[in-house]
Each structure stands twice: as structure tokens, then as C-alpha cells.
């Protein structure tokens, strides 16, 4: 996850890069996946509205919008899909501010 570097309350840009493992040494970027994000405040059990799922902008970068309604500890759940099938499990980033 490259962004948000300086998360704040409100709407934030979120940018992720995705690299597929070709060999041990070779991790080419891949723009053919779809990514869904679901922010969540684990301690309160709520999420936020109007998030925009990151979409590919080339070179393995995916850009979208993530909303935080308050300060505190947030978890951004990420679901990666290829041709409609889930390829990630229990993937999340923790954002605290």
C-alpha cells in the first residue's frame, strides 16, 4: 500500500501496487486483477460509506478512495479477484491516526 501516507478523517486516496510472483526473483506488475476494499473500525464494528474500489492505472498500480469517519484504528480489508474468483484471503492493512 503506497497511499494514504498521511491518513486523515474524510476522503483519502488509496493506492496499492500488485505484483504477481513469476519466479523467486521476478515479480512483474500485473494490471489484470480487480481489487475491492472495505474499511472497518474493528473495535466499534462499523465501516464507512462511499468508498471507491481501486482500479488499475498501469504498472501494477491501483487507485481508489477510502473514507474514514473518525480518528482511531482502522483496518482496510482488501479482496483481490482474478476473472471473478477470489485470490486473496484475509488480507488487510491497518491504518492508525
Amino acid at each position: 500500500m503506497l497511499q494514504p501516507v498521511d491518513p486523515k478523517v474524510g476522503m483519502n486516496d488509496i493506492e496499492l501496487t500488485l505484483h504477481r510472483k513469476a519466479t523467486m526473483m521476478d515479480w512483474p506488475s500485473d494490471d489484470t486483477y480487480t481489487i475491492e476494499i472495505t474499511p472497518e473500525m474493528p473495535s466499534m464494528g462499523h465501516g464507512s460509506p462511499n468508498n471507491v474500489n481501486p482500479s488499475s492505472i498501469g504498472n501494477g498500480h491501483y487507485k481508489g478512495k477510502v473514507n474514514f469517519t473518525m480518528t482511531g484504528e482502522w483496518r482496510v480489508n482488501v479482496l483481490v479477484k482474478k476473472d471473478g474468483a477470489d485470490v486473496s484471503q484475509n488480507l488487510f492493512f491497518t491504518v492508525t491516526f
Binding site: M41, S43, M44, T71, G72, T96
Partner: peptide
């Protein structure tokens, strides 16, 4: 400002709105 703590854990960062 909400302060959350689970039993046995240290408090979480405050949540402000």
C-alpha cells in the same frame, strides 16, 4: 471522543469526531 478498551488489553487510540 471515544475511548475503547477490551478487558485485559491496553486502551486503543482515541476516536474523535
Amino acid at each position: 471522543t471515544m475511548h475503547m478498551r477490551y478487558a485485559g488489553f491496553s486502551p486503543e487510540p482515541p476516536m474523535y469526531m
